[in-house]
Design a protein around this nucleic acid. Structure first.
Lengths: 207, 207, 207, 207
DNA sequence: TATTAAACGAGACGGTACGTCCTGTCTTGGT
DNA sequence: ACCAAGACAGGACGTACCGTCTCGTTTAATA
C-alpha cells in the first residue's frame, strides 16, 4: 500500500517505531479517558512526548490517528469455530460485539466513523477491518446454516446481514434502548425462527 | 417539572423570533452547502447577521444548532395511510427514508447524532423526532400486518424494528454498499417473506 | 446650560433620585473594592438593581459615572483658615492631599482623568472640582504669604502652582518614590526656603 | 533572579524578530492614527498579519504592547551637553519634553501609565525608560549648577525634581492651561530665580 | 379622580474584543 | 535524515460589555 516505490533507497534516519507506539498509546489513553472530542494532535503530542510534525508524518489528522488507535484496540476477532452449530456461533459472535460496543469504545468508533471523511483511504481500511470483518464472519455462518438446512436461503444475503449488524449499530447510536446481550438472542431468533417454533423465513419443516 | 412557576411574568424584552429564524436559515444553508464540519457559530453569525451571543442564548453549541436546523428541515413524515396494505406501506416508508438519507443531509444527521453529547436534552429530542418517529410508524405498520394475518407475530418487536431501520443506518454509515431503493424492497421481502413464497417468520409454513 | 428649552413641560414621571443614588453607591463600592477597570455599567446595574438604560440616562459612559462617584467621595476640602500662617496652612493643605491620594482612590482619580475624553464637559467639571479647587486654595495661600512678606512675589504664579501640585501627581503616577507626608514639607520648604536658613534658589550667602 | 538556569538549551524554533517588528509597527501606527483606546490586540493582529497568539506570547495585554511601542518611539534623549550652562541646558531639556508631550503621544503615554498595572514589570521598565530618564538628566544639570554656584543646594533634591517634571505632567493631564514652551522657561526662572532680578524665595524681598 | 406620558426593572439585541485552544506548517538544535 | 521542541499564521471558541432597543410596570403631574 505504501510500498509502491520499488526501490526505497532508505536514506537518512528511519522513522522511529517507538514514536509511533508512544503516539498510539497516548491516543488510546486519551480516547478512553476523555473521549473522542478531546483527542487532539496537540494533546497527543503533549502526552506522548512526540513532536507534532512527527505525528503529522504518520497520520494526516486526528481522525486517522483515532481510527488507528481504535483499530489496534479492537479485539482480534477470534471468530467462532465454523464447525459448531451456526445458530449458536452467530449468537456468540453478536454477543461479543455487543459486549465490545457496550464500552465507551463503541461510541467512539461510531463517532470516528461518522465524523471522518467517508472517502479517505484510511476510513475505508477502518471500515473493512473493524466493521465488515465481523459482517463477513456472519455471512459465513449464515451460509453454513443454509448448507445444513437450518435456514432457508435468503433472497438477499447482504440485506439480511445489514439487518443483523445494523440493528446493533442502530441501538448504539440512537440509544433508544440499551444495547444488551438480549438483543443478540432476539436477532438470532428473528433470523432463525423461535427456538421451539418453526424458523423464521423458512418454510422448510423442522423435520 | 416545568410547572413550578405557574405564572412566569416574562419580564424583559422577549427573544426575537426573527433572530432565531435568521440563524436557523443560515445554519441550514451552511449545512447544505458546506457540510457539518463547517457549521461554525462564527460562520452562522456572519452569514445571518445575528450576533454571536444571541446565538449562544438559544443554542449552547454548534451541534445543537445543527440539530435544530436539521430537525426543521426533516420532512414532516406524511406517514402512509394505515388503511393501505401494510407491506406496501412499509416499503413506501423505507423508500422515503432511503431517498432522504441519500442526500447530503443523511450523513449530516448521522454525524450530528454521533458527535453530540448523547445525554443532552437536545440530542434526545432530536432522536425522538428524527429517528424514532419513523420507527414508530414502522411499528404500527407491522402491528396492522400481524392483525391482518400477513405476518407472524414477532417474538421481539423492538428487535425486529431495529433490524429494519438499523439496516438503513448501517449502509449509510459503513458505506460498504450503496443505500439505494433496492434495499427497502429487500428488507420488506426479508420480513414478510418473498412476494410469491410464504412470508418470513410465518407459521403458515409447516404443513 | 441645560435650560435652553424655554418651556420644559415636565410631563410624565420624573427621574428617580433613588435610582441615581443606588447607582452611585454601587459604583463607589466597586471602585473601592475592584478598581477602575472593573467599573462597568453592566456591573453597576447588576449590583445596584438599577436598569442599564436608567444609568445611561444619567451618565453617558462608565468614565462619567466613575467621575461622579469619585467626585462625591472627595472630601469636601475644609480649606484651612486663611487667617493662619500661610506657610503652615499650605503644608496642611498638601498633607491632606497626600493622605487622600495615598488611598486607592488617588490612583483611580488619575486613571479616570487620563482615560476620559479630555474635552468632555464632565471631565472639565471633574477637573475643576477635584483638581483645581485645591490649586486655587493654594493660590490664595501663596498670595496671602506674599502680602505678609513671607514670600517673594513669584514671576509666574501659575507655573509655581503647577510645580507644587504637579509634584504630587507626578509621584502618584510615576511611582518612583512614595507619595508620603514628607513630600508636602519638602515642597513647602522648597517654595518658602528652609525654615531656618535662607530660602531656596538664592545665592544670598547664609550670613 | 533570571540566572537560575545557567544554560537554557534554547530548544525549539526561536521567536521571530520579524513578527515582533510587524506587531510593534502596526501598534505604533494605530496609536498615532486612532489613539490608545483603539489599540486592540485584534486590530494589531489584523493590521500586522501577525497571529493573535503570537502577540500574546510577547505581550500579555494591549497596555504592555502599547508601552513598548511608545517606548520605542520615544526620542532617544540626546541629552544636552553637560558642559554647557546648566540653566540653559535645563531650559532646553524641558522645552524638548514640552514639545514631545504636545503631540498626541504625550497623552497616550499618560493614559498608558495611568491605566496600566502599576506593579507590572513592564510598567516599571516603561517608567524608568520614558519618565525617569529625563528626570535623572535634570538631576545632573541641577547638580552641576550647584557645583558652579548658580544654584543654592536644595534641601530635598528629589522633591525639587518632582516639582519640575510634575509641573509638565500636571498641565498635560489636568489640562487647565496649555502645555507650551513658556512653561519651561517659567519653571527654570522659578528654580534659578529671574534672570535679572533676585531668585525665587529670596530674602531680597526685604522688610 | 382619571389620564397619560415618561421613567422604571429587566433583559434581548447586533457588535467588538477578549484571551484560549487547536490546526497544520515551518524552523531550530540535537542526536 | 529524522527527531523533540516549539514558534508561526490562521481561525473558532465561548465570555464579557458595549450602547440600543423593546417589553410590561409603576408613578406622579395634568386635565
Amino acid at each position: 500500500m505504501s510500498q509502491d516505490a520499488p526501490a526505497p533507497p532508505k536514506r537518512g534516519r528511519p522513522r522511529s517505531a517507538a514514536a509511533r507506539r508512544k503516539a498510539l498509546d497516548a491516543a488510546r489513553e486519551i480516547l478512553v479517558r476523555d473521549g473522542f472530542g478531546r483527542l487532539t494532535i496537540e494533546a497527543v503530542a503533549q502526552a506522548s512526548g512526540v513532536g507534532k510534525p512527527t505525528i503529522y508524518r504518520s497520520w494526516s489528522n486526528a481522525q486517522e490517528l483515532a481510527m488507528e488507535a481504535l483499530l489496534e484496540a479492537a479485539p482480534d476477532a477470534p471468530l467462532p469455530g465454523d464447525g459448531a452449530a451456526p445458530r449458536e456461533a452467530l449468537t456468540a459472535l453478536l454477543s461479543r460485539i455487543v459486549r465490545a460496543f457496550a464500552t465507551t469504545r463503541g461510541r467512539q468508533i461510531a463517532m470516528a466513523l461518522a465524523t471522518a471523511d467517508p472517502d479517505s483511504e484510511f476510513t475505508r481500511a477502518f471500515r473493512n477491518r473493524v466493521i465488515l470483518e465481523s459482517r463477513e464472519a456472519g455471512r459465513r455462518l449464515l451460509l453454513s446454516a443454509v448448507a445444513r438446512g437450518d435456514l432457508a436461503p435468503p433472497a438477499d444475503m447482504d440485506a439480511l446481514l445489514d439487518m443483523i449488524f445494523g440493528a446493533l449499530m442502530f441501538r448504539l447510536l440512537a440509544g433508544h434502548r440499551p444495547l444488551d446481550p438480549a438483543l443478540a438472542h432476539a436477532i438470532v431468533a428473528q433470523v432463525f425462527g423461535s427456538p421451539s417454533g418453526p424458523p423464521l423465513g423458512t418454510d422448510a419443516a423442522p423435520t
